[in-house]
Structure formats: structure tokens, C-alpha cells
């Protein structure tokens, strides 16, 4: 399983990387939406998961989600917004654009894992 981490902060990319690698993903990083699309284009197969910040230079996360959703080849890619944008209306916008889940910063490792479990990307933490 491959995860693409899209965030302009390398600190945040490192935090997310630590969590998804702990869940068995191979992690690839990009610093903005356009770089993420370019990275996907250069891959042999699309990522299974994209974890996407909202506010980034060049191309923001919402634009990335719309563009990715328009590509049939990326239909199977699960998209999770990971952002400090936390108004109800923003969450609605991101879901409408095609994000599957939404993690609000600040988040703990447990809460990120919970969301991945909801999406069936890691075994449910349930019975341990």
C-alpha cells in the first residue's frame, strides 16, 4: 500500500509519514497540489491513499482533490484531508469535492489511525 502525503510543511509531512509508515504504508511526499499531481504522474501505479493539506502554495488541497477526482485512473485512491481548516462549511466543501475523510489539525496518531480504520485501510483497532 502506498500513501502520498501532500503538505507544504515538512514538519507535518514527517508527522504523517511516521503514522502511515507505522501502519505499513510506503510513503511518498509532495509539497503542494501540483507537485502531488506530478508525483502521481511519474508513478508506476497510483497511490492507494492521499493525505492532503488544504492551504498550500501553487495549488491548494481543495483544487488537488477536484483535479484528482476528475481523473478516472485515480478513482480508487482514497483521499483524506488533513488540515487546520475546521469550519463546518469547509468540511462540507471538501467532502463534496470528493474527499473521503477529514482529519482536523491538531490530531493525535490514534485519531489518524481511527480514520484509516474507518476507511478500511488498516485493520480495525477493535479487538486489538
Amino acid at each position: 500500500m502506498r500513501a502520498l502525503i501532500v503538505d507544504d510543511s515538512r514538519t507535518m509531512r514527517r508527522i504523517v509519514r511516521r503514522i502511515v509508515e507505522g501502519c505499513g504504508f510506503e510513503a511518498v511526499e509532495a509539497g503542494d497540489g501540483q507537485a502531488a499531481l506530478d508525483a502521481i504522474g511519474a508513478m508506476d501505479r497510483p497511490p492507494d491513499l492521499a493525505l492532503v493539506d488544504w492551504n498550500m502554495p501553487v495549488m491548494d488541497g481543495l483544487e488537488f482533490v477536484s483535479r484528482a477526482r476528475a481523473q478516472p485512473a485515480l478513482r480508487a485512491m482514497t483521499i483524506v484531508m488533513v488540515t487546520t481548516e475546521s469550519e463546518q462549511s469547509q468540511i462540507v466543501r471538501a467532502l463534496a469535492a470528493g474527499a473521503h475523510e477529514y482529519v482536523i489539525k491538531p490530531f493525535t496518531a490514534d485519531s489518524m489511525i481511527d480514520k484509516l480504520a474507518l476507511l478500511g485501510l488498516v485493520p480495525n483497532g477493535a479487538s486489538l
Binding site: S9, R10, T11, M12, N55, T83, T84, E85, S86, E87, K105, P106
Partner: peptide, 16 residues
């Protein structure tokens, strides 16, 4: 970078 992300997270939550 870390200080930027710290203020970004606080800023986003303030904005809400």
C-alpha cells in the same frame, strides 16, 4: 518549518 506549522494550526482553529 515547525514554528510555521505551529502558528498555522493555531491560526486555522482561530479562524473557525
Amino acid at each position: 518549518d515547525a514554528l510555521g506549522e505551529l502558528v498555522n494550526i493555531i491560526g486555522g482553529n482561530v479562524k473557525s
